[in-house]
């Protein structure tokens, strides 16, 4: 498809317009944190950031979501579902986080199970990606099939070049948006900008310091559920908190429960859950199939590097590096992948 140009000076105007016409989610500064929030205009938006502390996955899978409310009056049960999602723009998300949304799609819009709450948000959303300008020491998107300027999953991808944003139109949704705001998305000769973007992508791809290689790891996992490796230091040092799963852009487990006020009226809520919690697999009879940190850690990493591949032919990790940064005890998925690769080679 085509490409366009936005002058940096017009970004505020664009954001203000988008906030007026859509529910606009964009990165904002909240004290020391960079988080995706609904914004009312350009004034709150922060575009000069490395990576947000929490991914924008909440736009599609909010941490708390009411699925319906119910009222039982003695002889009738009334169920009220929330209305479908409003038109939304997710602006300024990084390529890794956008790729992560694609890993949700087959889960929530699969052949077997469709999730109307997710689909409604996904259908009504436009994703405007923003290429990275810097590679952190914890980044490894390249090893997961992505890249700092990767267009995958975006409807539009903006790349900052000098005083302009080079805009790649990737989908029809993106095309409709640039046409609707054509006074901002200028039609110009973009040949030089395209070249500049390629150079930026090339430059950034040389800046990754984490060497991660998935080759052979899944095959090892396919044939070895029990490995002595899982009894090592990682399960000893893990504190069973939910940080890695909550900051992960691809983790999507949830719990469902009723939030009642004591009578027969209430809401059915779904909220994020974490496979790192001991209660996650606790069964009503008291049995827990993942009784210790060993089984829980194995599950989390197997999900990323095997189960998601088995089910959907996609790696369940996009290399954003958040779990690496935030884990209180420095459990590091890149180290685990490399260790497993070594185990595979010596097997």
């Amino acid at each position: 498809m085509e490409s366009r140009v936005v002058n940096k000076g017009q970004i505020s105007e664009l954001l203000d317009k988008l906030a007026k016409d859509y529910n606009l989610f964009a990165p904002v500064k909240d004290e020391t944190m960079t988080l995706f929030r609904r914004v009312s205009g350009a004034q709150d938006v922060l575009l000069d950031y490395n990576n947000s502390d929490i991914s924008p996955k909440g736009c599609f899978l909010p941490q708390n979501e009411k699925t319906f409310s119910y009222m039982y009056t003695g002889d009738s049960l009334e169920i009220n579902k929330p209305e479908g999602a409003q038109k939304t723009v997710l602006f300024g998300a990084r390529p890794c986080d956008i790729k992560a949304v694609l890993t949700f799609d087959p889960v929530f819009e699969g052949v077997k199970f469709g999730d109307e709450y997710y689909s409604s948000k996904r259908e009504n959303s436009i994703i405007i990606g923003l290429s990275c300008t810097k590679v952190l020491s914890t980044c490894f998107c390249y090893a997961m099939g992505g890249g700092p300027c990767d267009i995958t999953g975006s409807d539009l991808l903006l790349t900052e070049i000098g005083d302009k944003y080079y805009v790649e139109v990737i989908t029809e949704k993106g095309q409709a948006l640039v046409d609707a705001y054509s006074q901002i998305f200028a039609k110009q000769d973009t040949a030089q900008l395209a070249k500049d973007k390629d150079e930026l992508a090339k430059k950034l791809s040389g800046e990754f310091v984490r060497k991660v290689d998935l080759t052979g790891v899944k095959e090892l996992m396919d044939n070895n559920f029990e490995l002595p490796y899982w009894s090592g230091d990682d399960q000893k040092k893990c504190i069973s908190c939910g940080i890695c799963t909550y900051v992960c852009p691809t983790c999507h487990c949830f719990d469902i429960f009723d939030y009642t006020t004591g009578d027969f009226t209430g809401d059915r809520i779904r909220c994020w859950d974490s496979c790192m919690y001991p209660e996650y697999t606790l069964e009503a009879g008291g049995h827990n199939p993942r009784p210790t940190r060993k089984e829980r850690i194995r599950n989390r990493f197997m999900h990323k590097i095997k189960y998601h591949l088995d089910r959907y032919n996609m790696v369940g990790c996009v290399g954003c590096g958040r779990c690496v940064i935030k884990c209180p005890v420095n459990i590091d998925i890149t180290k685990i992948i490399n260790d497993l690769k070594e185990v595979a080679q010596n097997a």
């Binding site: 504190i239 069973s240 908190c241 939910g242 940080i243 909550y246 994020w272 919690y277 209180p328």
Partner: peptide, 9 residues
């Protein structure tokens, strides 16, 4: 986020 890291640590 109620990740309970503060409690667990």
């Amino acid at each position: 986020l109620r990740c309970y890291a503060c409690r667990n640590v």
